[in-house]
Design a protein around this nucleic acid. Structure first.
Lengths: 229, 229
DNA sequence: GTGGTATTCAAGTATTCACTTGAATACCAC
DNA sequence: GTGGTATTCAAGTGAATACTTGAATACCAC
């Protein structure tokens, strides 16, 4: 049919989209941006790379149409360009978690014994929030909390948790959440709290899934003296 | 937090899934396998590559857990390993068609003037099939027809269409379908039929979407003397 | 066992890619 | 205008990748 070249180029175009996600660092960027928009230096910090390198990764994501930008003074904020990109990222994680054996090992060795740790589904958390017998703890970095969080949640970034443990209320179960199933922040928080004998559990998924499920969200800065709930 | 290494490896594992789709040839393989299982030499033929190269691409898909194999004598049949992989492939195509500008040009320059061509949705086709005023034409290669097709469809692979035009019934509109939105077979068939003054249109999507929508399907060899409907 | 076929493995080459470094650009404050 | 900051661009290096070629393996028919 004489179509070899055009056909190849068509599928190369499809593949170019997947190829952009085929780098761990860019995948990490997409995962960060799934939480909300970020400036370049913030992204560089979160993924632990230099600014120039981060910028080039962002250019690639931009060229593939997966992110868009917004300028504000000297800063340029990046965000995912639409829900199709989020669906793609979820699809990648699903295939990976179903089929990549290494993931289970990685998750087990690094996340700790997830199975032995209490987890709550979104529905369970909603119910217990309504009953008022839990404290919801957002352990993501604060900018992510600002751009959206579960209503009533307290923001204590995992980095600060050790120093602010005594501010947390006793008596009620603390439910920590973070970026999602494959983020370790909530796991670390639960481990830390349990070592101190405090009842703690993690939300099975993270904020992106919560928001995607159209459950109520809230945005803005944490309340002053965030320690008191 | 001292997690740099493990975190990087985790996201590398996610990225490894996307990376496998990041080659036009492997994307083509996934697209072919979305139609049903195939032996290595069949795949090599469809994507226009050597057998050794095709085999190595298949090994990569296998290592990523995206395909599985079944042995039958000397032949080894590959198939997609599950619905998550199909969802991933659809997600890639969606992001590509939304965001990669080049795709529109490629589609326009190669597919011809799709907009000027009548297309039917699945619902429209179902209705007209019930009314009995259309002939449904499957222009995919015959093995794909055998592994599943729209009930009542006639199999005339695009390669054979030119030689079998006179066998097709006149009077009723011919609706051609193929592998999907980005497959050219149906477009070529419609162009060919219209040049002969026959009323023709294409199904907007392809067989995979039809089957995924749980519309009725049929499988088996084409009826003898497939020309008569 | 032998011969034939389908598939995989292994080595070689040209290309592509990630990250680093250092310089250039674009904006704001003054 | 100058100085400072955020971002992008460009060049260089070491590693990874796609495709080719030729050989090895695994199965079947006999």
């Amino acid at each position: 049919m004489g179509d070899r070249l055009a056909k190849d180029r068509l599928f190369d175009a499809f593949a170019s989209v997947a190829k952009v996600l085929g780098s761990g660092r860019r995948a990490e960027i997409v995962d960060v941006l799934a939480q909300g928009e970020r400036a370049v230096d913030e992204i560089a910090g979160e993924i632990g790379q230099g600014i120039a390198n981060t910028s080039q990764h962002l250019q690639q994501l931009l060229r593939a149409g997966m992110v868009c930008t917004r300028r504000e003074g000297t800063r340029i904020y990046y965000r995912l360009s639409g829900p199709a990109v989020e669906r793609l990222w979820v699809a990648v994680r699903q295939v990976a978690s179903e089929h990549v054996a290494e993931l289970d090992e990685l998750a087990a060795s690094y996340f700790g014994d997830r199975a032995a740790m209490d987890t709550l589904t979104r529905a369970e958390l909603s119910k217990r929030m309504a009953a008022g017998d839990v404290v919801v703890l957002d352990v993501r970095p604060e900018p992510e909390f600002r751009s959206g969080h579960i209503p009533g949640a307290v923001s204590v970034p995992i980095r600060d948790l050790a120093g602010r443990l005594k501010d947390l209320p006793h008596g009620r179960t603390i439910v920590a959440y973070c970026r999602g199933q494959y983020c370790v922040f909530a796991d670390e928080a639960v481990r830390m709290l349990r070592q101190l004998g405090m009842p703690a559990a993690r939300l099975e998924e993270g904020y992106p899934e919560w928001a995607a499920a159209r459950l109520p969200v809230e945005s803005g800065a944490p309340r002053a003296a965030a320690g008191r709930v």
